[in-house]
């Protein structure tokens, strides 16, 4: 018997992981059942988000970090989100990641996602994709998105630790605030520190962090200088990220994070379960539409009947959430 896709993901088989991620992007039939089976195998990976303005060196930094994690004996997966063209829906993906030392490295799994390529929405594809890499046993998952646009910044909410990348030069730090990036940073990186002006940008950022007065017992956001091209400051950055994960753990923030992601996932799943048969072509649905159109009933009552919820809004007797079989 051939191994199922779930088995292949759990065995960290590259082609199996790749296939599973495609199924997620396309929301193929049956993908939810596969994800359900993977769920119990997740929860180990440290998800690190990397965001910042276009061209700040995110992909180069991600590659340098991946190599450093590998050097430390940790396994790495990378999800790189690139913007789709607003006109054609097409995209040019992950170009700089593919252009350096990591290209084709079988020890590091790299997958590019287009912002509009995912048919169930980007955040869902990212959340599900992270689960796959987590279940495959990656110790660290690096998630790159460009820090423009709300969708891209919001995606960082799925990471345990978020790195915001700036580059030396007047006004860049200010731009970061405008884009709403200052608040999401757990670690600030000033990349291209081999270029002049890095120290000034570091102190600008420190000033700004001081101004946005933090409460007691909050994580103290560090500012780290790196040169991604020269591999400088990378081990230090990773040390800060490890420290942040430790802090999350000690302060109950990891659990909080898991609960927040789970809330979203349960709601997505519930919507899908509930709506599966609620569409034109399904007899009960069509009948309800007729009734409402002829004003024999109202939309709310019809919806409650279809969902098997009584008119007072109570749930049906049987559990609406089917227990997943372990087969």
């Amino acid at each position: 018997m051939t191994a199922t896709l779930v088995d292949r993901v759990l065995a960290n088989d590259q082609a199996g992981i790749a296939r599973m991620l495609t199924r997620i992007e396309r929301r193929d039939e049956g993908v939810d059942k596969e994800l359900a089976q993977l769920h119990e195998h997740t929860g180990r990976a440290h998800v690190v988000g990397i965001t910042g303005p276009p061209g700040s060196g995110k992909s180069t930094l991600v590659s340098a970090m991946a190599l450093e994690y590998r050097r430390q004996g940790r396994t790495v997966g990378i999800l790189a989100v690139d913007p789709s063209s607003a006109y054609s829906g097409g995209a040019i993906l992950g170009d700089h990641i593919r252009m350096n030392a990591l290209a084709g490295n079988p020890d590091v799994y790299i997958r590019s996602l287009a912002t509009r390529g995912a048919l169930g929405g980007l955040s869902r594809a990212v959340v599900d994709g992270l689960s796959v890499l987590d279940a495959a046993g990656k110790d660290v998952i690096l998630l790159e998105t460009v820090g423009v646009g709300q969708v891209e910044v919001d995606i960082m909410g799925v990471a345990h630790s978020t790195v915001v990348v700036s580059i030396p030069g007047a006004g860049d730090a200010i731009q970061a605030i405008k884009a709403g990036l200052l608040e999401v940073a757990d670690v600030h990186v000033v990349n291209k520190a081999d270029a002049p002006g890095a120290d000034r940008t570091v102190s600008e950022l420190r000033d700004m962090l001081r101004l946005s007065r933090r409460k007691a017992f909050q994580w103290n956001v560090p500012v780290q200088k790196t040169s991604a091209t020269k591999h400088e400051g990378i081990a230090e950055l990773i040390a800060e990220l490890d420290k942040h994960l430790g802090w999350m753990h000690e302060h109950g923030e990891l659990e909080q994070h898991a609960r927040r992601i789970s809330t979203t996932r349960v709601r997505w799943a519930a919507e899908e379960v509930a709506l599966r048969d609620l569409r034109p072509g399904k007899p009960d649905f069509d009948a309800a539409v007729e009734q409402v159109a002829h004003r024999r009933t109202d939309p709310l009552t019809a919806a409650r009947q279809l969902l098997g919820v009584d008119t007072a809004g109570n749930p049906p007797q049987t559990s609406p959430i089917p227990k997943e079989g372990t087969s």
Binding site: Y87, G90, A91, I92, L93, D95, R98, G104
Partner: peptide, 16 residues
């Protein structure tokens, strides 16, 4: 290809 709606991944030069 992008303008025709495809997702394109370019590997860069000198790949093996």
């Amino acid at each position: 290809l992008r303008d025709a709606g495809m997702e394109v991944i370019y590997t860069g030069l000198h790949r093996t």
